[in-house]
């Protein structure tokens, strides 16, 4: 087992610890680019919501708050199992690592299924922006801006989830084959950072999309 991480040490790093630090920092830099990526859409949302607060509150009412809250809880559970997966890797507990990675994968898939059900509801209600958009109240044009932002934000978030689920599947297989040890588990650690970041994006999407102006109308 000892040569696994000895082989994995690249020649330009002095120690495995230094290599791990560099990988972690690189992942954080990537996550900062992700903050800016979602940040553009978030600021678009802030601008349009401040321009059309009434229509945005009315459109927000058409989202299913129960499914939204349920999905928030599912993601929080998946973040817990991911954190426990990294902990198992740190302790070199292979079976626990495989178990927690699989649970995270499963919870991520549950999130995606619930999200698809919500999108299907939006489709049957005619809330897809475009020529078939149905809106009985005033401000159909501005309501389409809300739903465009809703589908862009939740769609890109779901795409990140799909990528995360794929990464978890690869990790679970590699963990099962004993590729990780308490001395080398960098991929598990970095995927954990990515998974928690995607959770944080949803932590902001849930109140912004589902909860605004809920008490009105």
């Amino acid at each position: 087992m000892a040569d696994i991480h000895a082989l994995a040490l690249r020649h330009h790093f002095a120690t495995p610890a230094q290599q791990k630090d560099a990988s972690t920092l690189g992942m954080w830099v990537f996550l900062v680019t992700e903050i800016m990526f979602f940040g553009g859409l978030f600021s678009g949302y802030v601008v349009y919501r401040s321009l059309f607060p009434g229509v945005f509150a009315a459109a927000s009412h058409h989202l299913d708050i129960t499914l939204g809250a349920l999905n928030t809880a599912v993601l929080i559970c998946s973040s817990l199992t991911m954190a426990l997966a990294v902990r198992s890797a740190q302790l070199g507990a292979r079976r626990l690592l495989v178990g927690f990675l699989s649970s995270t994968l499963l919870l991520g898939s549950v999130f995606l299924v619930i999200k698809s059900i919500e999108w299907w509801h939006k489709y049957t209600e005619g809330h897809i922006p475009g020529p078939w958009f149905r809106w009985e109240q005033a401000g159909a044009g501005n309501a389409q801006i809300f739903f465009s932002l809703y589908f862009s934000l939740t769609g890109l978030h779901a795409l990140h989830m799909v990528i995360g689920v794929g990464l978890l599947a690869v990790l679970a297989i590699r963990a099962w084959r004993g590729r990780f040890s308490s001395a080398y588990y960098t991929p598990v650690d970095l995927t954990g950072l990515y998974w928690h970041f995607v959770d944080i994006v949803w932590i902001f999407l849930f109140p912004l999309l589902y909860l605004i102006g809920r008490h009105e109308v």
Binding site: V32, I35, M36, S43, V47, S50
Partner: peptide, 25 residues
């Protein structure tokens, strides 16, 4: 170093939102 990177990211996000809103308002 990690903390500085994250704070820089949050600072840049704040700039993005503040300057955009400064324009619109």
């Amino acid at each position: 170093m990690t903390k500085v990177v994250l704070l820089a990211g949050i600072f840049w996000l704040a700039l993005l939102i503040a300057l955009t809103l400064g324009d619109y308002f």
